[in-house]
C-alpha cells in the first residue's frame, strides 16, 4: 500500500491549515505536515516527498488585488533555493498523479493559478475565476452540497450530499466565456453544487446558494479528477459537535469524508 503524505501549505494569510491537517490525519494519512510557503522556497520541504497537497482556506495577502491573486503571482514567478521554479515543481507533482485539494481561499488559488478547471489539460491557464458574492458580503453559513456522480473527481466518490460551512466573500464562479461554462458541464468538471436542503435539488436561491454562483457551482475538478477545489470548508466539520444542529441530533456525514476518499485513492495506487 502506498504511503499517503500530505502537505498542507500555509503562510501569507492562510489560516485553516491546522484543521486541514487534522482532517487529513483523521482520514488516515500517514503524514500531514503543515508547512510554510517559505519552507518550500528554502527547500526545507520538498514537494516531491508528498503525494497529496492541501491548499487551505484563509486570506492570502488579505484578498488584496482579488482573492489569492497575489499568491498566484508568487507561485508563478518564484524559484526555490535549488533554482527550480515553483511552477515546475507543481507541474511535476501533477504529472506524477499527485492529489491536490483547494479549500475556499485554496480553491481561489487553484483557479487563479489555472490548475482548475484545466480544460484540454491546459494547466496554468486561467479559464475561470471567482468573483464577489451577489450579496457583496462575506458570509458564514452552512450549506448543502450535491455531488455530481458523473464527475471524474476522486475526492467525491460514493458521496451523494455534504453539509458543510461556507465562509467567503468571493465565491461566485465566473467563466472566461460561455464556451468554458458549457464544457465544465459537458465534461462533468462541475463536481459540487449548492442544493436546497429539503428537495436536494441544485439551487440558485439565496441563502441555500450563498453567492449566486451559476448552476449553483460550489466545486470543480480537473479532467483527471485528481484536483478538487471547493468554496465550502469540509475540514471545518471534523467532529460531530461542529454541526450547527448537533444538539438537536441532526444527522450528517463529517466533511472529512473528502479526505478519506483521497487517502483511499492514494492507497490503491
Amino acid at each position: 500500500m502506498a504511503q499517503v503524505n500530505t502537505l498542507v501549505i500555509t503562510g501569507y494569510g492562510t489560516n485553516s491549515h491546522e484543521e486541514s491537517a487534522h482532517a487529513a490525519r483523521l482520514a488516515g494519512a500517514d503524514r500531514a505536515d503543515v508547512v510554510h510557503f517559505a519552507d518550500i522556497v528554502a527547500r526545507r520541504t520538498r514537494i516531491e516527498d508528498y503525494n497529496f497537497i492541501v491548499f487551505p482556506g484563509g486570506f492570502l495577502d488579505g484578498d488584496d488585488l482579488g482573492a489569492a491573486h497575489a499568491a498566484a503571482q508568487r507561485w508563478l514567478h518564484l524559484s526555490d533555493a535549488d533554482g527550480q521554479s515553483l511552477l515546475d515543481r507543481l507541474k511535476e507533482f501533477i504529472g506524477r498523479g499527485g492529489l491536490a485539494l483547494g479549500i475556499c481561499n485554496g480553491f481561489q488559488l487553484l483557479v487563479k493559478l489555472g490548475l482548475l478547471p484545466a480544460l484540454d489539460g491546459k494547466y496554468f491557464e486561467r479559464q475561470v475565476s471567482l468573483g464577489h458574492n451577489d450579496s457583496a458580503r462575506y458570509e458564514d453559513r452552512w450549506v448543502t452540497l450535491k455531488v455530481n456522480p458523473q464527475s471524474p473527481c476522486v475526492f467525491t466518490r460514493g458521496i451523494d450530499t455534504l453539509y458543510v460551512p461556507v465562509r467567503h466573500g468571493e465565491g461566485k464562479l465566473v467563466p472566461l466565456d460561455d464556451e468554458v461554462m458549457r464544457r465544465l458541464v459537458a465534461e462533468n468538471l462541475v463536481t459540487l453544487q449548492y442544493a436546497h436542503p429539503e428537495t436536494g435539488a441544485v439551487t440558485m436561491e439565496y441563502p441555500w446558494n450563498p453567492n449566486g454562483s451559476p448552476l449553483g457551482i460550489a466545486g470543480l475538478t480537473d479532467p483527471t479528477g485528481r484536483i478538487l477545489g471547493l468554496m465550502p470548508h469540509p475540514e471545518a466539520f471534523n467532529h460531530p459537535t461542529n454541526h450547527p444542529g448537533w444538539t438537536r441530533g441532526e444527522p450528517a456525514t463529517l466533511g472529512t469524508v473528502l479526505f478519506e476518499n483521497a487517502v483511499r485513492h492514494l492507497r490503491g495506487q
Binding site: 489560516n15 491546522e18 458570509e139 452552512w142 460551512p165 461542529n242 450547527p244 444538539t247
Partner: peptide, 23 residues
C-alpha cells in the same frame, strides 16, 4: 452582523452564535 464574521475558522466550533433549526 454575526454572519459577516467568521465564527468557525480553526475548526473547533461547538456552540455557535446562532443556533436552532434555522440557525
Amino acid at each position: 452582523l454575526i454572519r459577516q464574521y467568521d465564527h468557525e475558522v480553526k475548526g473547533g466550533s461547538v456552540v455557535k452564535p446562532l443556533v436552532g433549526v434555522k440557525r
